[in-house]
Design a protein around this nucleic acid. Structure first.
Lengths: 213, 213
DNA sequence: CCGGTGAGTGCACGGTCGTGCACCCGGGGC
DNA sequence: GCCCCGGGTGCACGACCGTGCACTCACCGG
């Protein structure tokens, strides 16, 4: 239960935080087999190596744990968005760069992305709501980024929202596809190529959009 | 346990089929609260009004039940695709017609669409695979439909696949949004308008696609 | 009419679940 | 140096879980 790993003193608060982390990690891993709604408090406790009732010292319920996992997962995801935003928004290769970064982050934070994809539709209500809210924030962020491009000057806020929504949903679907795909590298290559072409199609449509309507 | 509802004789096979239906209906309703993976055989049996062990006379496991529900759900969904395909594929209002039909079917077969959206990412492995396979078939169907349009004559099979994939994922996302949305009719209106605009953007992009590359 | 078949029953088992309660004991403020 | 706060323990409970087994009894084919 206690592993100072050396004569390190390790304060009270540090020990608590370490247990909390262990619970979050265990829940992320165990829920990967099925879903949060099929995860029992006792499984988590056993994996962590604490007695079931000690769980309540950190979270009120599995659902509350899930909300904390959502927060944590979206920290990864926002880091990804920051990476994508970094670098000039020249139109030429923005598509390739963005998808490359997406793929890289999906691999590096696989369990977080899997968690979001699963619980987005099947998690406990509070978790679902938290995820949808975060995704909406991502869409808004993307919309303000798009608004900064000169090509979108004549666009309405509504058009920006619609385009952002489309792009985000395509990226979510691509992330899901990558994670679902067999680990063969050619399968992933194909998914990436498809995503590239789709994103380009969407951007071409967007560029020719305002001219009508 | 037996409700002939009148002096109707009702054969052996009919009674069995009726119980099977009741099990499928109960599972569809009960799994709506959370997910298949959190659904117990005993809950289903109690809802149906049979003893738990009698469940095995109809399905080997909850997972097998889930696969049967996938089959059934996609019968609804194929009916929708048939509706959309019926009527001439004139380009002018194909977008509006398609989305109208989608919305109508989502409302009429709400529980089936909810089931697919949930279990697609979080269901038991066999259920997930079955759903992905069916969606892939839908994409192929759409691709062959698109191939019949004169505008796609110069397209490669690969391009058709990519576009179909994009359209289907947008429709899945739209269906999810409609079901998630509050029942206020104006919220649904907004989703529908967004979906229309997105589909038009995609089609505009597709029409201007082959000209480059 | 008679015998077999198979949907549904009743009971029992070992296991897991969430949670309440009294308790322990070591770090940290006084 | 003492005391208390709080993370972690141990136990017990009633409920629910999947499943095995022996059983009933109404149906249908012979």
């Amino acid at each position: 239960m206690h592993r100072p790993t050396a004569g390190r003193p390790e304060s009270r608060g540090e020990r608590k935080e370490r247990t909390r982390r262990a619970i979050l990690d265990a829940a992320l891993e165990l829920s990967g087999e099925t879903s949060l709604v099929a995860l029992s408090l006792r499984q988590v406790a056993k994996e962590v190596g604490i007695v079931p009732t000690a769980f309540y010292r950190h979270f009120d319920s599995i659902e509350a744990l899930g909300v904390a996992l959502v927060d944590e997962s979206f920290v990864s995801l926002r880091a990804m968005l920051r990476d994508i935003r970094r670098g000039d928004p020249a139109f030429s290769d923005v598509v390739d760069r963005s998808i490359t970064i997406l793929v890289e982050h999906v691999h590096r934070q696989r369990s977080h992305f899997l968690f979001i994809a699963r619980e987005r539709a099947a998690g406990p209500p509070a978790v679902r709501d938290a995820i949808h809210h975060e995704i909406e924030l991502c869409e808004r962020e993307l919309a303000t980024d798009l608004a900064r491009l000169p090509a979108t000057d004549p666009w309405s806020a509504e058009d920006l929202r619609i385009l952002s929504n489309l792009i985000v949903m395509a990226m979510v679907a691509t992330a899901e596809a990558i994670m679902t795909a067999p680990p063969r590298p050619d399968a992933e290559k194909a998914i990436i190529e498809t995503a590239r072409a789709q994103l380009r199609m969407v951007l071409i449509g967007a560029l020719n959009w305002q001219s009508r309507t």
